[in-house]
Nucleic acid binder design. Sequence first.
RNA 1: GGCGAUGUAGCUCAGCUGGUUAGAGCGAAGGAUUCAUAAACCUUAGGUCGGCGGUUCGAGUCCGCCCAUCGCCA
Length: 524
Amino acid sequence: MTARPTAYITTPIYYVNDRPHIGHAYTTTLCDVWARAMRFAGRDVFFLTGTDEHGVKVEKSARERGIDPQALADENAAEFERVLEVFGLTNDDFIRTTQSRHVRQVQAFVKRLLEMDAVYLGEFEGWYDEGQEEYVTENRARETDYTSPISGRPLVKATEKNYYFRLSAFQERLEAFFEANPGFVRPEARRNEVLGRLRDGLQDVPITRTNFSWGIPFPDDEQHVIYVWIDALLNYATALGMAEDDGDAGGRHRYWPADLHVIGKEILWFHAVIWPAVLMALDLPLPTCVYAHSFWISEGQKMSKSLGNFIDLPTIERYMDTYGLDAWRWYMVVQGPLGATDADFQAAGFHETYTTDLVNTVGNCASRTTAMIGKYFDGVVPADAGTVFEGWDLPGAAATAFERWTAAMATFALDDACEAAIGLLRTVDAFINATEPFKVAKDESRRDELASILARCAEAVRIASMLLSPILPAKMAELRAALSIDLDVANGGLAEQAAWSDRLAGSTVTKVALFPRIEAPQDA
RNA sequence: GGCGAUGUAGCUCAGCUGGUUAGAGCGAAGGAUUCAUAAACCUUAGGUCGGCGGUUCGAGUCCGCCCAUCGCCA
């Protein structure tokens, strides 16, 4: 028995000091679509998400509420886990940076970095704002005349010993790596940003702090706490047990390295440069791709606390109540900021996308096809009588859609994959309009022709439903039920399922209305 | 302030190495039709391709400057 090819996809770990909002839901949804698609395509998938729980902000928030930081982390991590459930997301693990499996492995990794001389104890001198408990850069300090921009009090010259990661030592290897792997950072615009900054030269980065204690202690020097990036980035490795000293007892090493780290653009630098450098230092294989999407804005404006226009969890749940979970997924994937520019979340746009794509195209095409089979063939799919329709090749269209879908999924062009699938249904619609089965049905002598039309429509709809299943899992399950297909789309078989066949002939079909028409929202 | 990107029909965007009447989807208007969720179908919409200048026989498509928006960095 040969091992199936693996696929390892990750979201960033979400900071527990935040409340879940559309940004988190979006990233995780994208990963979920891809994970489902890869499972269906037969790959051995590991889909990871989790929470980042250390750091000064969590420590501070907890202190303000008079509770233990761990208690705060537990509370908010539970909220993030609830999101996964509400959205029906299919992650294989949920890692938390306060879990002992993570803590001990981070320490092991850091020890290794020390041994390799990739981490060293260095001294930092800078302008310190005592009120804010933070350093300001020389430039910023000069701008404010060496006083605190907040309190106005003079800044003090302070020195601090910290452990540094020798990032500068990896300049050439990183440049060579980027050269050899043009697809490492995507989309292209983001790659260019990284390359530009790389050209400016790399500086070593501190990886420990001493001004707070809520974090993983530095091995053998516990007054230092490992700073966010090393702690957080390593989750991708610790979740697979890459630094456990039990070998591969968890059986997850086969997933390493990640095929895809999906992130938001704000953390690109860490993933695109620091992360591969750390892995080079650890002598671990590098991930295939870091995909940095952009942000959602809301009704034309940046989301902010002061504007109160955050698309938060309750807002999202309202949309899901009205339009359904699958409709939410569709909007995220089709209208979202997969590219280099931000996308605008609009109530009117949501409604329009729902109506145009799901009601008028997917739902309607399934409806008219199943309705005609019900009306003209008593609900039993006829066998294709082989009639030739000049200029129409549905099997060919299905094969093309499948190829395009496959290529799109391979490059995380999820919107394009959706387009490929729905395009096949548009072809079915056009085929019906051109061949006019509803007229053919009036002539008993054209029975074969009618059977050929509807058999082909049903088969194309079936194949489209396969391609749509990772994006619209619940609705496509409904459609499969209406076509009397019993199928597990989560465990391989895509290529076989997406191939043109006559398997529907003789099966019973019921008319479906997958996406109910919904009245446009009043406001806006 | 440095580097980079973008600016094309009401909206969202295509337009590769410059070449006849600048495209698609959605929206809007009109028409025709009924298998279907008042859906699908047909036709239409006349946008100085951000502005100015330049290169060229010829420029959304190249160059310069300017304006606007955005991103990364400082």
